[in-house]
């Protein structure tokens, strides 16, 4: 993967048909302040991955920041990793942002929200006011 290149442009068409769904597996936050998303993508038969990226979109401003992803070569499903340096997110005035996975196949760009089923998530890590790691019940 190349180094994270930052681009900003207006969101275009969110209704594009996907050629490969990203299946989210793990989100890591490193001590260096990087968010690393990993998962898999199963390309349709004959599909050809040209590029892939994660896009963070501010909810109010719709400003996008694109982070190129890297993926494994060979057998499907492809293992995909995206690195988002959280301190580099320039989302002034925002407190919420959505995360998309974008893949450019041989014919067109495909974009979809990264799926994370809240039914599975009952406890979510958060920092206390003292900066310590705690878990909070999602229903609370």
């Amino acid at each position: 993967m190349s180094g994270a290149t930052l681009m900003a442009y207006r969101e275009k068409d969110l209704g594009i048909r996907m050629s490969g769904d990203f299946e989210f597996a793990k989100a890591r936050i490193t001590a260096a302040g990087e968010l690393i998303l990993t998962g898999t993508v199963c390309l349709p038969e004959g599909g050809n991955a040209v590029s892939a990226s994660f896009v963070v979109v501010g909810r109010k401003t719709q400003i996008e920041t694109i982070f190129p992803a890297e993926w494994s070569e060979g057998r499907q499903p492809l293992e995909v990793t995206g690195r988002i340096p959280l301190q580099a997110l320039e989302l002034e005035g925002e407190t919420l942002a959505n995360v998309y996975f974008v893949s450019d196949g041989s014919d067109r760009e495909n974009r979809a929200r990264v799926v994370w089923d809240p039914e599975a998530v009952h406890w979510l890590p958060y920092p206390t006011k003292f900066g310590n790691l705690s878990l909070k019940r999602m229903e609370s």
Partner: peptide, 23 residues
């Protein structure tokens, strides 16, 4: 300690089954 600086963006699952980030 929670990793990274604070405040920072943390992932969460929305009610519509999507990943979002919260500051």
């Amino acid at each position: 300690g929670f990793p990274g600086k604070s405040p920072s963006w943390k992932p969460f699952a929305t009610a519509h089954a999507a990943m979002s980030l919260k500051l």
